[in-house]
Design a protein around this nucleic acid. Structure first.
Lengths: 340, 340
DNA sequence: GTTCCTTTGCAAAACGTTTTGTATGTTGCT
DNA sequence: AGCAACATACAAAACGTTTTGCAAAGGAAC
């Protein structure tokens, strides 16, 4: 902790006043000091290894240059990293730092964490969920500009960003129909959440565009896990009239579908084509053959949230917006034309 | 941003001086003010919704109550969440906040991020990697107390924490031998990293304890991915004299081993028992049957790092330590006695 | 009634910045 | 020469805390 050097030390070493150093170093005010002096001061500051104390400048400017990210449990989800990194990259590109706080599902704790963030004078807050859902944002956040990430708020005054679930379903349909499939089933998530509804609606729309439909009996729902997908797929693929392709709510269910196919002696994609959603590298890349899937744009959503937050900070009057980010198709080897 | 209330407002409202408010609120100095006055001040502060400005107190105290966490790419790894949450939980329990920064593999960027952290006057830094490795910590960190997380430093002056790789291998051997296996193979990671060496050594030690050995031809190495595990397992399981159990470097390779077994018409665990390392829920829980595996203690390591950092902050003279955290066995259904 | 504690409270300085207002030259114009 | 205009640099106040040192008041001991 070699005795930190402060602006006063720089001033002394450069033989000018503190004011002049501050002006020289502040992009905006450097016009108030002679160009040669600026050079000199910068040189001295560099030699001394001067780094401004952001606590002090934050105090003075009422601007901490810190953004808070509060999320529910990041432990259990593999998406967390991408979302945080997207947010952190964007923050860092704009000279901000990210304080991450997560409270599991404990509301009391969440409030505490939010208060801690506010005591540290964060300039704004990203209120994030680990899967797309409707949330009602704690009142405490009214005090600070806030963006809702991977969720929509009941309060329309808050900007938010979610994946384009509809588009994901639509693209999946497009992919399978293009490959020549006509009898396609969907294994959906049984939970009553936007992702389930959105992906289904999009899937139907995609089929419809090609004059196809999703018959009632080809829509099954289960627990959004490997086991849930496996059970649903076992049932579907054991039928007399079995589908030639499966659109699965997520990659985990798709993994279950692979297991079901294997169990029934069906080859992927020779006997059944499979499409997932999420692009969990671990699964999509690990399955054999690789799983074609719609990537959830967690990184991009994290970025978007921070950029939007910064822009609302700049310009508090800016209109709120509710963004849907597309879910690009990542093609691997799980889709092929149907047999015959 | 309803005009924040500061200590002066509280003082005015309570009819006392700012000093008295500060003392009343400061656990340590509250003895300097009448108990009844303390009550009164606390009540007033509560009513007004007073929350101290940590920027100001940090400036005054030379203690920001912020810890920095710098890591390499957290996007690509599913462990990041647990590590961050462990660290954040521990920090929050002790009144600190965590600033997370990640720089991918770009050293220049990493330095920039570290400097940003230091400008914000973080009290200490956790230097984290996403898999156990030897690192040399950037010089900039000398300025601030630092703990190395999931890595060991070439600088013994820094405390560090890693998983007990040796123990993981040992326990895996124990598990398989106990189940009755005698011809066991290991599919190791071909990379020259501590995890590969440690798990192998531990595995050998575990076998040795029971009078068994790992013959050269039963030790194969591959790329630490599903494909790598699959190839290695295909080769091993196609042999005339095939092993009855496989210890895989990680869960991804174990997933590949399942695929190989399935491809060869072998049942898990009926024909071959399989053990992994990592306890990636996504995989270990998703495989069918569930994969028994040694859990990597990311959450605990994150906690340990923060607790150790805080203790070194309290007591700068404290001896450094180099911790190994055990990797507990998580039993599922992939191990059974060998046939016959 | 003086002295000496003890209790209670306050004023002021400090942490490291940024910015406003002002002072001192210097130049250019009439 | 006189005056405006400008360039350059500085002093001081402010941001919201914490803590040291001091003062006033009350009580106890002699």
């Amino acid at each position: 902790m070699a005795t930190k050097v402060n602006i006063r030390d720089v001033a002394k070493a450069a033989g000018v006043s503190v004011t002049t150093v501050s002006h020289a170093l502040s992009e905006a005010h450097s016009s108030r000091v002679n160009a040669r002096t600026v050079e000199h001061i910068k040189a001295v500051a560099g030699d001394l290894g001067y780094a401004p104390n952001r606590l002090a400048s934050g105090l003075r400017n009422q601007r901490s240059q810190i953004l808070g990210l509060v999320s529910d449990e990041i432990t259990t989800t593999p998406f967390a990293g991408a979302m945080i990194q997207g947010a952190q990259d964007a923050a860092s590109e704009h000279g901000h730092l990210l304080m991450v706080v997560n409270s599991g599902l404990d509301n009391e704790l969440e409030l505490q964490e939010i208060r801690a963030l506010q005591q540290h004078q964060v300039d704004g807050i990203i209120y994030a969920r680990m899967f797309n859902q409707q949330v009602s944002v704690p009142e405490e956040l009214q005090a600070v500009p806030t963006i809702v990430l991977d969720a929509t708020s009941d309060n329309p005054g808050l900007s938010s960003v979610v994946p384009d679930e509809f588009g994901a379903g639509d693209s999946a349909a497009e992919l399978l129909v293009r490959a020549g499939h006509r009898t396609i089933a969907m294994i959906n998530n049984e939970d009553d959440i936007p992702a389930a509804h959105g992906r289904l609606a999009g899937f139907r729309a995609g089929l419809d565009r090609h004059g196809l439909q999703l018959p009632e009996e080809f829509l099954v729902a289960g627990h959004p896990s490997t086991a849930g997908g496996r059970e649903a797929a076992l049932e579907l693929l054991s039928r007399q009239e079995r589908p030639t392709a499966l659109f699965c709510f997520n990659d985990q269910m798709a993994m279950g579908a692979y297991q079901a196919a294997g169990h029934l002696g069906l080859g992927v994609p020779a006997d059944v084509s499979i499409v997932g959603v999420d692009n969990l590298e671990l699964i999509a890349d690990g399955l054999w053959p690789g799983l074609s899937t719609m990537a959830l744009p967690h990184y991009e959503m994290g970025r978007w949230a921070v950029l939007k937050l910064l822009s609302e900070l700049e310009n508090p009057g800016a209109p709120r917006s509710h963004e849907k980010i597309p879910c690009p198709l990542v093609e691997r080897e799980s889709v092929a034309p149907p047999r015959g």
